[in-house]
Write a protein that binds this DNA or RNA. Structure first.
Lengths: 216, 216
DNA sequence: AAGCTAGGTAATGTCGACAATCGACATGAA
DNA sequence: TTCATGTCGATTGTCGACATTACCTAGCTT
């Protein structure tokens, strides 16, 4: 028995998909770039089948676009795409946050409080990568309490795309303080359980990010 | 050049996925049934790779569920699932219909009129299958004018699931007349371009279907 | 020179086989 | 009996090779 047996549980294709995702986020692979099955198979030292399956995963998450017999390309984020993502995010989050309200108890608010406080730390440390993670985590946490597995799944895919364009916004780095403030307000709105206020804050928060993204 | 060249354009996996979809809709394959790659490969006379890719497609549409090293199963539609689908459908359609308004001109209303009138015919002919198609077509047509490719894609997948549980509702067959009336009202609401009214009609229409589906 | 046709090359689609893993059953010890 | 361990068959994961298709280029025709 190999020692790796204790580590490897998920299929190789999933691992490859994750590694490709990272490469795109780190800009090692550019938007619009063509991905050749053979090249990647060689680069990752796996077979083309595995790469193919990884492509399917990334395709579901909207990171990659495959056309039959034409190849697969890293999805290009045009202004239209960013607008679509913003629109969808607003739609899902306002709905999910609202529907999560009845299931948010003190336990949940404590968790969110913890996430938010960690954000404050990361802001001071100027650790933007962790800050991103916490941002995503905060929103995912609430969406999960919408209790609709389909909406959660859609949101997970959407978050991959959100992250993709956020990682390309250097401007965002300069506004770290408001990053924390925004989530603090969002959390307070949730605690108040005031639907109107929550929707307002969610929309404002997303629009705030959108403003940063003009001209991606 | 082979004569089939004119026919075969899309990958085999897509064709297989469609055929599997039909089999599920026709109840030739039951909910929750396990799908064996080898068996299906033999049945359709293709390789396992092709079946695998078909599974990935059906997985995206939510028709089957694959778990690593555990196999893939036809998705089971519990009451919870139906509730989720209804919730998501309402969310997407109200949003998409509302956002489609500015792009709906006389050309579009004529098209919708045509679809609706065909429904009247099919009701008289008692051709339920075609009626289903027209129903799906009507809603897809409007959603397409939301101009958000991501929302359209989500809706397409959702419609596959909607169809899946509609095909299992014998009760619906008895209410064919109101089927036509419902869409007539929906169309009138769209023509009026009254957001409030449209949302109302969409919600009513979906809830009407939901009522039929209690206890699936 | 422009456009069309044909052929070659490179990439994707499909295949069948081998490897790793899971589940069920059998076997044996506490 | 009950639980742990080992073995076997069945099924999915991964692989490399062949088949088919699309893109590019060269050469021809007008």
């Amino acid at each position: 028995m190999d020692i790796d047996s204790f580590i490897v549980q998920e299929p190789l294709s999933q691992l490859i998909a994750d590694r490709l995702k990272r490469k795109i986020w780190n800009k090692e692979i550019a938007f619009g770039e063509r991905l050749l099955e053979s090249d990647l198979a060689e680069a990752f030292d796996v077979s083309r089948s595995t790469i193919r399956e990884a492509f399917k995963i990334l395709g579901m998450e909207g990171l990659v676009i495959s056309k039959a017999r034409k190849g697969t390309y890293v999805a290009n984020l045009t202004e239209q795409d960013v607008a679509e993502i913003i629109e969808l995010r607003t739609l899902i989050e306002t709905h999910a946050f609202t529907h999560a309200i009845p299931r948010l108890e003190s336990k949940q608010f404590e968790d969110l409080e913890e996430i938010t406080e960690k954000m404050r730390e990361k802001v001071l440390e100027k650790n933007w990568n962790d800050l991103f993670d916490l941002d995503m985590q905060f929103h995912s946490y609430v969406v999960r309490y919408s209790n609709n597995s389909r909406i959660i799944k859609i949101y997970d895919s959407l978050q991959v795309q959100i992250r993709t364009f956020l990682m390309n916004l250097d401007q965002l780095y300069s506004s770290h303080q408001s990053f924390y403030d925004e989530h603090r307000e969002l959390l307070n709105a949730l605690i108040s359980k005031d639907v109107q206020l929550i929707n307002e804050k969610v929309e404002t928060h997303i629009k705030y990010v959108e403003a940063k993204s003009v001209g991606v």
